[in-house]
Write a protein that binds this DNA or RNA. Structure first.
Length: 469
DNA sequence: AAACAGTGCGCG
DNA sequence: AAAGCGCGCACTGTTT
């Protein structure tokens, strides 16, 4: 029986030094363009009113008001579901197949993914309006509320997350819009550098996969992480779509990456993956490199339908579901066999002991399911790499009495407000700490680490950052 | 009025 | 046997 400990000395030290460094980050704050922020709030507010007016012309709104009278509220998803799928009798898009058309509370499911499958002009407009509402309320107004004297000081916490990652609040700096270009610009154009400074974001590339490979020591995963000419996602896409690697388009690769590789790594299973990918092939009209539609191509391989994807049911032959089941089997029992053995071992060990340890010096005890046990062991240490680097970088900036300040952190990236004259020194030092000093300090890191740095123009906004070659 | 549960959505 | 991990925040609708 080993001695009980909550956290090893290394873990303790990391959190103490991390908290101190993040306190500096919070105190520094990130500069906000207040006029731009107000202009964007006005702009998006006008846009929302316009769309609302249009929505109120629709027959859907007539039914809505008739149903709910003075309580009719366009922001209510629960009302929307009842109006569309009950009052108007529009078939719920998930009613085909085994999917849950209702949430656990018994309401109609009305999230964006579900509604995007409803072919009705009102619904399309409604969704675009809700996206704007989200941008306005959570982000623009949230930022405005927390901005003081032109600076925003988000909190960064090390004591709230079960996997020993960090979180951020007031406002949450770690979920500012990025994927939707229009919304991203609306919000990120308000974050600006100090005068004569650059906003620079340094990102650990593929850090979770790298850490995963270091911990499970799967030879194939290690090979992918060590050889930059290989591409795991492309290879898996070729299996999923039954084609040559050279026929995989970027879109098809990204589909495999998001809906299969990462999903599988996080503990998803083939029935769900098959449904996600099949829907993606259709909605994105995925093709082979020569333009052949993927569904047409798969048909030549004898795969013409998705299959029922019923949990408990055996997939029928000739279905995509059956095919993905085979790929899943190949993925875990051939390609990443060692990884698979290791995660089973992690799960068994936890069940016997009632706790599991992170390699960075933390013991996690309590009730966890299989996926938690596997994922936390990777998620936590991946963030600790970033935290370790942030501590060193901050220390260096202070010791050298530099004007540059770290102003934020997003799990695997550091955002800094870099003085013009310190740009080159900052880039060199951050790169050195992240890719050289860290693996030296933590010898269990046995794959090369890579940083991707992006910089915004001098005095410019976060949204305009561009990759530094 | 405040607290709570439920739902949905933004990010890694 | 179960069936994707981690957060924070806004809003609706109900309960206290």
């Amino acid at each position: 029986m080993s001695t009980y400990y909550a956290t090893k000395a290394e873990g303790c030290l990391l959190l103490h030094q991390g908290a101190a460094a993040l306190a500096d980050v919070e105190a520094a704050g990130i500069r906000i363009d207040g006029r731009r922020l107000q202009a964007n709030i006005d702009r998006v507010s006008r846009k929302i009113s316009n769309i609302r007016e249009q929505l109120k012309q629709s027959e859907v709104w007539q039914v809505w008001e008739k149903t709910y009278k003075h309580k009719a509220n366009m922001r209510s998803r629960s009302q929307l579901g009842t109006v569309l799928f009950k009052q108007m009798g529009i078939p719920h898009p998930l009613s085909i197949g085994p999917n849950d058309t209702r949430t656990k509370g018994g309401r109609y499911r009305t999230d964006a993914h579900t509604l995007s499958l409803v072919d009705h002009p009102f619904v399309k407009r409604y969704l675009s309006c809700e996206r704007l509402e989200k941008a306005r309320a959570t982000y623009l107004l949230g930022i405005q509320q927390e901005t003081h004297n032109g600076y925003l000081h988000p909190s960064f916490n090390l004591h709230l997350v079960r996997s020993y990652r960090s979180s951020s609040d007031s406002p949450n700096f770690q979920n500012m819009p990025r994927h939707n270009p229009w919304i991203a610009r609306l919000v990120r154009s308000c974050f600006i550098a100090r005068p004569n400074h650059y906003l620079i974001e340094s990102d650990f590339s593929k850090i979770e996969v790298c850490i995963s490979a270091c911990l499970n020591k799967d030879p194939e995963l290690l090979r992918y992480m060590r050889d930059p000419t290989t591409d795991m996602h492309r290879d898996i896409a070729a299996e999923l779509f039954q084609c040559e690697q050279s026929e995989v388009t970027k879109q098809a690769r990204d589909c495999a990456k998001g809906n299969f590789v990462f999903a599988q790594f996080y503990g998803d299973w083939y029935k769900h993956c098959a449904a996600l990918i099949w829907q993606n092939i259709g909605s994105q009209k995925l093709t082979l490199a020569d333009g052949t539609p993927l569904k047409k191509h798969l048909a030549t391989k004898g795969i013409r339908t998705l299959g029922s994807c019923q949990s408990g049911g055996r997939p029928a032959s000739g279905t995509f579901e059956r095919h993905v089941q085979r790929v899943e089997d190949w993925f875990w029992n051939e390609r990443f066999r060692v990884y698979n053995e290791r995660r089973e071992q992690w799960w068994m060990d936890y069940q016997q002991r009632g706790y599991f340890d992170l390699i960075t010096g933390f013991r996690i005890s309590g009730l966890y399911n299989r996926n938690d046990v596997i994922n936390y062991r990777i998620q936590g240490p991946a963030f600790h790499c970033l935290l370790w680097a942030l501590i060193r970088l901050n220390r260096w900036l202070k010791k050298k009495r530099m004007k540059t300040k770290i102003v934020g952190q997003i799990h695997d990236s550091i955002v800094a407000d870099v003085a013009k004259s310190e740009r080159e020194a900052y880039l060199a030092k951050s790169n050195k700490i992240m890719t050289q000093e860290l693996p030296k300090a933590w010898p269990w890191i046995i794959v090369p680490l890579k940083v991707e740095a992006e910089a915004a123009p001098l005095g410019g906004a976060w949204i305009d950052k561009e990759t530094i070659s």
